[in-house]
Amino acid sequence: MEAVAVDDLRTRKLTSPEANAKLLAAQREIVSRERLKPFTKRTDRHGLIYFGGHMSIVLGTGYLVYLATGTGWLIPAMLLHGVMLGHLFAPMHECSHGTAFRTRWLNETVHWITGIMILWPPTYFRYDHTGHHTHAQEFGKDPELVLPSPSSWMDYVYYVTATQLWIKNIGWILRHSMGRIRPFNRQFVPEDQLPRIFLEARVMLAIYVGLAAVSVALGTWAVAIYWAIPTVIGVPVARAIRIADHTGCTEGKLDLRTYARTVRTGPLTRFLCWNMPYHCEHHLAPSVPFHALPALHAEVGHEMNPVDKGYWAVQRDVLRHHLERKFRFRIVQSL
């Protein structure tokens, strides 16, 4: 396992020419540009249907929370609502690639709305995510590496409960709003763009502080009941699903066929995840928008990792075969 010195991080740029040339060459080994081109077409229609549908579900579950207030159904309703809110990571991620909508302002607007709703600084995430695509599954280089080998059950709990997520994301917002950025995070952001990252964090912090202040001034729990508490208790479902994207797949080398996992699942999960269960195909060609991933899977899926049986099966396999049984706690992602 590679040890990464802090001094190296200060000077290293992860998105190097060599790494990206290798990535593109690996993609071309599997699918030519000519074969890929029909799948890269952008539309607004699909994004509008998915985002409109997703937000309608969120409004619907929010209404259930309203109906359940004062009854024993409040916690289950908030949990359901939170699961839907937690899946807003999917449109935020798709927008970070610029592939959710053909029209750029639509893409950027939804990127910001969803980023604010789930506490992900959207522009910083866009930079951070470049590192994930260039160095997927490389310890010390992939900023989104989930439960690398060896990981313990405590690592699993730390990840799935989203403890790691809140420490990381709130840390980003607070640190960046003070004009500071950790060396590991800094390497993804061009020097001249750091002021934008800091401004983004300040805007987000102002929104959250403003919401809290208004809530206190009006003596209302609405923000907590309809957004904050449901998100905290619901997001672990999305985290558990995300474990299936890479955990237990090939680590430490660029292998587009085997370093991600495509999972067979039902239409509701595919809808809420904006087709990210086709994760092999997404990493093969991130220029392909979410709505074309099933078609790309039909075209090249037989050349990739075998399709997994479902999310329950993946969780079981990860818990049985990937995690070490010993009690050990290692923070792997809060760099």
């Binding site: 040339a21 593109l24 540009r33 470049t130 695509h133 061009p190």
Partner: peptide
Amino acid sequence: THAFAFLSEGVVIDDIIECPVHQGR
């Protein structure tokens, strides 16, 4: 200019070229 990929491997959308690796435009 971001990560040095060949733009000719990318996607043209109207008058925009999108990089194939990180979707810079």
